[in-house]
Design a protein around this nucleic acid. Sequence first.
DNA 1: CGCAATTGAATTGTGCGCTATGTATATCGC
DNA 2: GCGATATACATAGCGCACAATTCAATTGCG
Lengths: 148, 148
Amino acid sequence: MAAPKMPTIDQMLCFAVYSTGHAFTRFYKPRLEALDLTYPQYLVFLVLWERDDVTVKALGDKLFLDSGTITPLVKRLEARGLVTRRRDEADERQVRVQLTAEGRALQAKAEAIPLAVIEGTGMGLDAADAMRRELFALRERLDAVLGE
Amino acid sequence: MAAPKMPTIDQMLCFAVYSTGHAFTRFYKPRLEALDLTYPQYLVFLVLWERDDVTVKALGDKLFLDSGTITPLVKRLEARGLVTRRRDEADERQVRVQLTAEGRALQAKAEAIPLAVIEGTGMGLDAADAMRRELFALRERLDAVLGE
DNA sequence: CGCAATTGAATTGTGCGCTATGTATATCGC
DNA sequence: GCGATATACATAGCGCACAATTCAATTGCG
């Protein structure tokens, strides 16, 4: 049997995910301007607003990002006085990240964003939920192949 | 009516897209090692293998990427002798990108990748197609809000 | 108790991806 | 024909995202 032809990019699920990810980031950018945050920074705050005082490792686990990505990102936020970083006393390998009053106060500015995003997607909540679950399941299978 | 609570990241479709995009890139990385290509570079080749001799503008349009991203990327491929870049004689604003023999020959090395990716997703073709179409439609709506 | 293995964070280097800006070229309207 | 406008590309700067590596701290085992 002959090998299948190379797919065109429009036939590829991975390209759909890749390019839609960029579209989301572009969509968020003007809406995060008031907070002066980038999209990955906003994700960090979403984690901290839900539960303050987490380790760099926990942040990386939740966001599926490397410490090489998390550490510089959190340092930039620290430099702006939005979070603090300090070594855990019980286990000095760990660095704990906490919100400052200013970082916590950003949440009020962010309150309108989720609705704007839902409207921007033009999707019903059920459809969005179904797609979200499928993507999480897909992410899990892709990472499982890597042996993570 | 009270404003809704901030969502957790696991409730956000955009985070699902964002993190699954990274998972796809991680999944591709070892499979592209034989070609010595990154995932975005591979996407450029997929466009060129389908139809050689395209402009930087056309590449950017197809991949939904800025010329600030495409130009350095293609220059790196040119430096390795995989493509050539040259000004269009009819319209000197345009730069045309063509495969070299070496760049064309890479396609043979890439033939096994699409099946590996399909297997890695663990999804049926119908399910993958449905998700792909929904993501393209979503991308279109998100970009439409930006006025692009 | 000492050492090997493991873990967590940080650093360095590289490749994006985007914004803003500048330059050159082409098009359009008067 | 000329000036204004638009287009295409390139550059600079910045923020990621990851791999590889290093270092410090912790854990587990003999």
